[in-house]
Design a protein around this nucleic acid. Structure first.
Lengths: 220, 220, 220, 220
DNA sequence: AATGAATGAGCCTTCATTCAT
DNA sequence: CATGAATGAAGGCTCATTCAT
């Protein structure tokens, strides 16, 4: 690896790869992505060389370039998939959230966030390290999505009063996300502890309590 | 970069460069560290090659190895300094925290955490990305320190009731740290908004409220 | 060069390049080995840098690592080939040696030793200089082989009486080898002088004479 | 090390060093040479960097260049000393050699050769590896000296008949030298075995026997 | 004289990418 | 389409030598 984001990439994005349409092609693309994900999470970013990816995928290095614009694109694609998976897990839990009172909705949301972070924590961590620092990193989309979801929930719940649902949604999901990522990285055993989920709920609900009180106090 | 944490580091304690004692030496060391910090925060980890560091520091590559065991050691030293600075900023605000009621102590603590995260946000972010997945990363020491400080505060305040001050301290600082780092990275303008600080306080105090209520409820 | 025998060699059996199978590959390998041999014998070990080898072989530096684990492995391979060649030349002359009386066998053996040392004297010399002080140097295998051959010859000839054929074989081949290498290195013109071969025979036969006499005298 | 004989040496021989005349200077020179010899024989040629030499000698790197034209000159000086020592050991045993009959002279000579090779076998070996390949290597002077001594002995002994004393002297000393160096390098334990010395004598005397017989036969 | 910080050419090796087969 | 040999820019590091102090 080690070269992502460098200026010396010689190939422009619109190069040669075709959209995989054949079954064979699709299988190759899958193999490449799976291989990359495995290497990335098991051996770390430095191990994810094109040679290693091709070897584990059981294809030739040339095939990598048949289907992807280069190493960076493989990782971007992987990031997109990973984010989509996390997003999907989160979405699944969202359907009836609106109808629940907030005290019930928050635990569900927390469970969903925990679940989505468990999709592939190592990969998630590696992708966070690998994505460019600039804005627009694919991996950041999950945080944005969570924030949006949270904001919508805050906005639609009549028993919640917050001044700026967008901001609050962002802050709360950043807080929860920060906790979850740190926990998964450094204290994965805590995930089995129901205390964690309860604490996450308390953070969110406690915050909303105070916001409500504050709003009430201000308006009185 | 891309090689930190590799297995092939072969420099032992013996042949490590001597601690600089002359004024000239110290200046060189400073130049190297400053140059590295600049490149790291402005151009990213990939740009921090030995050549680039030496060039920006205005010294020869050889001088890098006069004072550091290699590229990794430069970054480690930088990380240590950065963590120490952040820790110092946090510590400064800690003195009389114990005497204050929690509702006053928390805002102070939040201000201190905000201030410590402002020491060098870009560098902080890059160092977080540079850290290996395993435990023991230097940059993690700030989180550990914050957690310890928070735990001590929770423990020593009579108006706080939490079951596991260590865990709660860790979770709250992870939440706040997560928010701050994301905010600094993606929405730095929010820092000027007093809403942020208030929100952080609400998160912490709201959580403690609920913990207290829960504890009270359980014991009743 | 200068780095052979260092501790930092990190290439394990796993990631060693595959044995070349295609014709193109074999040609590249040959080119690399030939280039290395040439540089080694014409310009000395210091000149055998990877850059120089690749340049003379007409390949890129990367190709060196496609087929060899590194500079050291190229030289080891070369050494092995050289030793095998020398061994082959010596072996060819060995077939019917046993049936000849010792006075006829020794001249043949000397001729064979001379011939085997003429395979590539400069390379031989450089390889001797390159060898580490410890045991196990590839280049030493020729001496060991010669010693074994000589010991077998001594043991199987009824007109020879020596106490310790292994030791005597080793000493005589060391003597002859020492003479031949020095002669080739510093006085190559002497090789054309039939005196040399005669002298080598006289050394061996004279020594065996005395051993026989000593053995006879002792038993009488 | 590793750079001896390279073209890029920037300094010409007639550079700056003064002949050491003060006591202090002489001590420094000694320290440097001793340090170099130690490193060379104990740790091998790769370890003999100017830094290591200066460190072990307890002087600064600068001092190396005060007294020597560079690393190469240190080693050359060391080689000269080593050769001189070996030569001295050999010379000491030479005085009354001429008066002894050859059968008594040869054992003495062998003892002397063994003794001279024991002066510092490791250093001797390293110097052989380090000296340039071209003619005129300092380390070769011992062989030349031995050959000359041997030739003189052969010439002056009435009970010896050889056609070309110079050549024979060279060959015999090459043989003995080859045996001794190989023995010291690979089988140092054999030196304690009196068999070795006897074998060396037998080689020389056996050879001379045959030469005499040949000469006698030819003249008859 | 002595010191040792500074220099920088040069070394070995890696790895993303290309392209002939 | 697939292959993988070939490429070569770039990286980290070493070490003989210089020179200001």
């Amino acid at each position: 690896m080690a070269k992502r984001g460098d200026k010396k990439t010689k190939r422009s994005a619109e190069n040669r790869r075709r959209a995989p349409s054949q079954a064979r092609s699709r299988a190759t693309v899958e193999a490449i992505l799976t291989a990359t994900a495995q290497i990335l999470s098991r051996e770390g970013p430095e191990a994810a060389t094109t040679k290693a990816i091709a070897a584990r995928a059981g294809v030739s290095i040339g095939s990598l370039y048949q289907y992807f614009g280069g190493q960076g694109e493989i990782i971007d694609t992987l990031a997109r998939r990973h984010v989509d998976e996390m997003r999907a897990v989160l979405s699944d839990a969202l359907a009836e959230l609106i109808r629940l009172p907030i005290a019930d909705a928050v635990p569900r949301l927390m469970q969903a966030l925990i679940a989505s972070h468990q999709v592939d924590p190592e990969l998630d961590h590696v992708l966070h390290r690998l994505q460019p620092m600039q804005d627009g990193a694919i991996i950041d989309e999950f945080q944005d999505f969570s924030a949006t979801v949270a904001a919508a929930a805050l906005r639609s719940h009549p028993d919640v009063e917050v001044g700026d649902p967008e901001l609050v949604g962002a802050l709360l999901t950043e807080a929860v996300g920060g906790i979850l990522r740190e926990t998964l990285r450094r204290h994965p055993e805590r995930l089995d502890d129901p205390t964690l989920e309860r604490a996450l709920c308390d953070i969110v609900l406690g915050f909303l309590d105070r916001q409500r009180r504050r709003a009430g106090g201000e308006s009185t």
